[in-house]
Amino acid sequence: MEDSLMISEEDFLKILSAVRTVGDIDFIDYEPYLLCHRFERFMQMQGYASVAVLIDKMMQDKNFIDFFLYKIQVGTTEMFRDPQMWLELQKNVFPKFSGESVLKIWLPDVCGDDELNTLLILLEKNNLLVKSMIYATSYSERVLDDVKMGTIEPKKMEVSLDNYKQFSSDTEFFTNCFFKSDRFQCLSPKLLDKVIYLKHNVIHEEPPDNGFNLIIFRNRALYYSMSSRKTAVEKLYRCLLPGGYFAIGIGETLRGLEQNTKFVPISKTENIFKKP
């Protein structure tokens, strides 16, 4: 943060209007406070002195809006974030999948590859990957292109390995899931081959499939408006199998969603739930 830059409410509304006009996207689905901060951060990174400069760019360059939408998204932080949650999943959820012939898993609104990579490694470690069908969906083609690459920056690899060490002492297994390409580490194609990538808007579209055994939706709804969060979670609930599992971030709650979802907590600290 170079200096404080604060967008006024009036300017915020001007940006929303420009995005609606140029990009045909209505940000009404998103939490305005965090969205405004994303705009401020974008302007700082690009060195724009005023909102007028930003809006002018949107109006003059038709390719700019894609770049803008891509840059304001909040990515994921690291692989094996909250190692205890992944341990809980391995210990108390995965054994329940032993009798299934096919495992359907969905990561809606992916915004980076960390959660997906973690899941793939974990499934492989538990010999479940072979029978898994994993959907990774995002409303952004650019995000999906990034995720498909499976490339990890050295710094992120370091942090992720630290997380993994809290999860398991078998670090060789973790490192063997990657190969080196230039300065990056890349997830093995053998793992990535199990993923179906789809452009999909979890708030506005129907789920890409039904009968999911597990849906991982951690820290994505933080950026949604309350009503969009409700819409999304209720949709996810409906497309889970009875007995299917649902994970949200440890800083999130399902408070206020009890009327149309009857999730039962499996782990209160790690925020893993089961559909009865």
């Binding site: 943060m1 406070y33 965090l34 909040v74 994921t76 933080l222 950026y223 971030g249 800083g251």
Partner: peptide, 16 residues
């Protein structure tokens, strides 16, 4: 984040 609506919002944005 502290919001005008008298609630707290959390985020996983980049480290600052």
């Amino acid at each position: 984040y502290l919001t005008k609506g008298n609630t707290i919002s959390l985020s996983t944005e980049e480290v600052v």
